Each structure stands twice: as structure tokens, then as C-alpha cells.
Amino acid sequence: MFGISTLGWVHTIGSLPAIPAALYMIARHGRIVPRSGLGALYFVSMLIGAATVFLVAHQPVSYGIGIATILLLLAGYGAERVLRPSPAARYVEIICLTLSVFLLMLPTVTEILRRVPDGHPLVTDLKSPLLLGAQGALLALLIVGLTAQIIYLRRAGQGRAKRS
């Protein structure tokens, strides 16, 4: 079904829980919350997806996305341990984890458009206007979302400084 191998299904199903977990945390908290149950689910699911991409990928860009995703996850989840609880750690955490969501959604949207409906996908060419538009929309969401998160962090930091 959809031209996906058994290992491809392991990759897909293993990384699938990261999508609703990320969407919920971003809608509810405005960011990925690493030290939460959903944050742990996101981390494990993303690691499964990023690690198994090396076994199922057919394009070199997929390896780059897998490596970048793993590095962003480790940096985002480890920022507070390395930099101690600080504004810098919070910025690193939010930027890295937001970028990891983008790297999750970019291939997800691409693969859905290239495989659905089964046998007659919406996109057959990587230069399709529909695919490029969807990828551009994801990039715009990344830019707007990350900008909003940084502005919020900055204002929250200024508010704390004024109260001190």
C-alpha cells in the first residue's frame, strides 16, 4: 500500500505520534515542552523517525534531515542541562525544537503529496507547484512561529527584569 516497505511502515508509524504531540504542545503552550509526558513521547518518536530514515531513505537529502533532526533534538532537550536554567537555554531549546518540528513536517507533507491517493498521487514531480507551495507554506509557518516564540520569550524576560 502506497509503495511503502515494511521497514518504511516502521519508520512512518514510529514517527507518527510526534505530529499530534507537537501540534498539541505548540497550540497549548506555544512550544515543545521537553520535560512533560508529551515532550518525552515527541522525543522518542522523533528519534525513531530520524534513526530509521537511514534505513529507508533513497535520497541523500533525507540523510541530512535525519542527522539535523537528531542534532536539534539533542541540543533542544539538553540545552538546560548544559547551559543551566537560563534565558539562553530557553532560546536554544525553543529554536532547536521548533526547527525539529519543521524537519518533521517537511518530509511528511512531501511524502503524503507524493503517495496519496494510492496509485494516483497528487504530486509526481518534485518541482510541482503544489509541492513547492506546500513546502513554502511550511517555511512561512516556521518563520512566523519562531519569530512569535522569540518575541514572546523576549517580552517575558523583560517583564521578569522589571519586576526584579
Rank of each mutant, 00 (worst) to 15 (best):
residue 63 Y to S: 07
residue 65 I to G: 03
residue 65 I to R: 00
residue 65 I to W: 00
residue 66 G to E: 00
residue 67 I to F: 01
residue 67 I to Y: 01
residue 67 I to T: 04
residue 68 A to K: 02
residue 69 T to S: 07
residue 69 T to G: 07
residue 70 I to E: 03
residue 71 L to K: 01
residue 71 L to C: 08
residue 71 L to V: 13
residue 71 L to P: 04
residue 74 L to C: 13
residue 74 L to D: 11
residue 75 A to Q: 11
residue 76 G to W: 04
residue 76 G to E: 00
residue 76 G to I: 11
residue 76 G to Y: 00
residue 78 G to N: 12
residue 78 G to V: 09
residue 78 G to C: 04
residue 78 G to R: 10
residue 79 A to N: 05
residue 79 A to R: 00
residue 80 E to R: 15
residue 83 L to M: 12
residue 84 R to T: 15
residue 85 P to L: 12
residue 85 P to H: 12
residue 85 P to F: 12
residue 87 P to K: 14
residue 90 R to L: 13
residue 95 I to F: 09
residue 96 C to K: 00
residue 96 C to H: 07
residue 96 C to Y: 03
residue 97 L to P: 05
residue 97 L to N: 05
residue 98 T to S: 09
residue 98 T to I: 10
residue 98 T to W: 09
residue 99 L to K: 07
residue 99 L to F: 04
residue 102 F to L: 09
residue 103 L to I: 00
residue 103 L to T: 02
residue 107 P to D: 07
residue 108 T to N: 07
residue 109 V to L: 03
residue 110 T to P: 08
residue 111 E to W: 02
residue 111 E to A: 03
residue 111 E to G: 03
residue 113 L to I: 01
residue 115 R to I: 04
residue 116 V to M: 03
residue 116 V to D: 07
residue 116 V to Y: 10
residue 117 P to G: 01
residue 117 P to K: 02
residue 118 D to K: 14
residue 119 G to L: 06
residue 119 G to W: 05
residue 120 H to V: 14
residue 123 V to N: 06
residue 123 V to A: 10
residue 124 T to P: 14
residue 125 D to N: 06
residue 125 D to R: 01
residue 126 L to F: 15
residue 127 K to N: 15
